[in-house]
Amino acid sequence: MENIANYFGQHISQKRIVITGGTTGIGKAIADLLVSLGGRVFIFGRDENDFYNAMNDIKEKSKVGEIYGVAADITKKEDIDMIWGKVDRNLGGIDILINNAALPAGGLIEGDYEDWKYILETNVLGYIAFAKEAVNRMKEQKSGHIVNIGSMSAEVKEKTGVIYVSTKTAIRGFSTALRKEINPLGIKVSHVEPGAVTSDMQPDSKEMQQEKIKNMEMLEAEDIAMSVLFCLSQPKRCDIVSIQIRPHLQII
């Protein structure tokens, strides 16, 4: 095998990449990594402060790739159209989509209809809508890669997160069926399911999360970014269809 650094970098350099929810957590870590390898990356998130902080941080860290983006809400059709307009103008198309934007959600009893509707539109419909727009562009070039970030919740099915479990179980099924539909078009689909990862979605304090990382009970967002890079770095003949990443001492 050639130099391992070249093996990873050659699959990312100059690639046109869109990351949903790319301003914090796993999405931001993926953006950091792919820009550092020469990717041309477009990110967005609904919180303006998070967006500007992410853009500034990525620009300061790396001069290798390119970073573009906008503050936008994945549940709004007008924002989706606006994002893809900017993607087409800034990137000239898309090679890789990282579907990552998602919100936490609890059980059935504590929620209400409007809360569920917004969660479902973010965690499920957002993935479908962005995959559709990506496929429309990728099929013309007969190549592309969609990575759907799921969750081990789809397997564990914890009773405290019924709504979240429902959305991530939907993403598991969506990823499996989507691959069957679009693989003949030359487009890959990978499904990545992390276990516990430090993020703003976690109920624990930042201090508690750091303690869990130290105790190998929680992952860093960068760990998931590396797993995504592994999926993206395979030769054309090889698909990483599904991958699960768990903290060493998170017994599931």
Rank of each mutant, 00 (worst) to 15 (best):
A134M: 02
N136C: 05
G161L: 13
A31P: 08
G27T: 07
G45E: 11
I163Q: 00
L97Q: 03
H191C: 13
F42D: 07
T176E: 10
Y52K: 13
R179A: 15
N3S: 09
V124E: 09
N53I: 13
G186W: 01
N100M: 05
T23L: 06
T169P: 05
L103V: 13
A71F: 01
V70G: 05
I224L: 10
A31N: 03
A225P: 07
G195H: 06
E155R: 11
I94T: 08
I149L: 15
R16I: 06
K63L: 05
I26V: 14
D112Y: 11
R46C: 08
T160K: 10
Q250N: 06
I224H: 01
G195D: 05
F130E: 06
H11W: 10
T160F: 08
E121F: 10
V241N: 07
K139T: 04
N215W: 07
G106N: 13
E158L: 10
A5D: 12
A170R: 09
N215S: 15
G161D: 13
S227R: 04
N56T: 09
T122E: 04
A225G: 09
K188H: 13
L125S: 10
D57S: 12
I80Q: 04
I252C: 11
K236D: 15
I94A: 04
G9K: 02
S190E: 02
E140P: 02
I245Y: 12
F42G: 05
V41M: 03
Y113I: 05
A71L: 03
G25Y: 00
N3D: 13
S190V: 02
L97D: 03
G150P: 09
D115L: 09
K59L: 10
V41D: 08
N100D: 02
I182E: 06
G161E: 14
M201C: 06
I240F: 01
S233P: 10
I43G: 00
S62I: 05
I17Q: 00
C231P: 02
D88G: 07
F42S: 08
I26P: 09
P247G: 12
I251G: 00
S62N: 07
S175M: 09
A134E: 03
G106Q: 11
G186R: 02
S62T: 08
N3E: 12
G25F: 01
K139P: 00
G144S: 09
V162P: 04
I109K: 15
C238D: 10
G150S: 14
E66S: 15
I67N: 06
S166Y: 11
I240S: 12
V241R: 08
I43V: 11
M55S: 09
I43A: 05
C231H: 03
R137A: 04
